[in-house]
């Protein structure tokens, strides 16, 4: 029993440790997370690999350089009787440590270029969503899906009520108490209306800003893109598995910059199509009722 307990705990720690390093076990940030999330797209996986490759290169160079320094600091101390030599240059050495870094950098630039070329290509998307940043909320408009224009499906997405109440200065509410149905803390990372998208579909995002510059970032998708007034930026994603992925605005946009999270809910394709159809008919109904209302009370278009 005791033995099993230790082993159980060891396994938990091993899982936690590997998860800390890979970030694969959680879709959301988790306590003591040390590294990037691996994410749920090909792009985010490639970025994670690039992140690790460049990190390892830095570690190796660091070990060599700092190692040499530490050896020098212990071996060539005056208190140990070290006598300084007089030499002060070596063309050969200097060439070596100019050329080798160039080669290492080329080794990093190559995969980075490859990833960049692939990820900037937004062609052949099966779906388009327009994302607009406002102070301090996001708007999502579904533009087209599967070659057909989507009619009037769009909504604002704001910080959820529970987080909003808790985040007020001296609210007296505990951020730790803001949890979702599974008990996972989603303080400041939850919204009233998440962006619903199908998994396994190449989605193109058209990103712009309504007032000031914002930046749309969901770490699990592997990128962020600025939302700039007057400019429409394009980016894309193809989410490999259904789930809820959270992010935040990443460009300072005023007082509530820290309070405009992003939630992407990826669902299976069939489920998404059902959802989209329901939204479209709801919009139709809404429009019909509004038109009816406008007809019955001419002059009063406050609803429009």
């Amino acid at each position: 029993m005791k033995f099993g307990g230790i082993r159980g705990r060891a396994t938990t720690w091993a899982v936690a440790a590997s998860a800390l390093l890979s970030g694969s076990a959680w879709a959301n940030p988790h306590p003591w997370q040390l590294n990037l999330t691996k994410g749920v797209t090909q792009t985010s996986h490639e970025v994670w690999d690039l992140n690790m490759a460049s990190f390892l290169v830095c570690v190796v160079i660091g070990v060599i350089v700092f190692g040499a320094m530490i050896i020098a600091m212990f071996r060539f101390r005056k208190s140990k009787g070290a006598v300084a030599e007089k030499w002060s240059h070596s063309t050969k050495l200097e060439l070596v440590w100019t050329i080798i870094p160039v080669l290492i950098l080329m080794g990093l630039a190559w995969p980075a270029t490859k990833i960049l070329v692939r990820t900037t290509d937004t062609a052949d998307a099966q779906m388009t969503v327009k994302v607009t940043g406002y102070q301090w909320k996001w708007r999502y408009d579904y533009v087209d899906y599967d070659g057909k224009t989507v009619k009037k499906v769009g909504f604002m997405s704001r910080l959820d009520k529970k987080s909003d109440a808790t985040r007020q200065l001296d609210s007296g509410l505990d951020p730790k108490a803001v949890v979702d149905a599974n008990g996972t803390n989603d303080y400041l990372l939850n919204v009233d209306h998440p962006l619903v998208v199908p998994a396994g579909v190449k989605i193109r995002f058209l990103i712009t800003g309504g007032d000031v510059i914002h930046s749309w970032w969901v770490p699990d998708l592997g990128w962020k893109m600025d939302a700039i007034p007057g400019i429409v930026n394009a980016a894309w994603t193809k989410i490999s598995k259904p789930g809820i992925y959270r992010g935040q605005c990443a460009e300072l946009c005023g007082q509530d910059h820290g309070f405009m999270p992003i939630v992407v809910k990826a669902v299976p394709k069939a489920q998404f199509e059902k959802w989209l159809a329901a939204q479209e008919s709801a919009a139709q109904l809404d429009k019909a009722s509004r038109t009816a209302q406008a007809d019955s009370t001419p002059g009063d278009d406050s609803q429009g």
């Binding site: 959301n28 306590p31 997370q33 803390n185 970032w217 605005c249």
Partner: peptide, 10 residues
Amino acid sequence: PRRIPDYNVA
């Protein structure tokens, strides 16, 4: 993100 006054408990 940087420049935020408050954050998730993670």
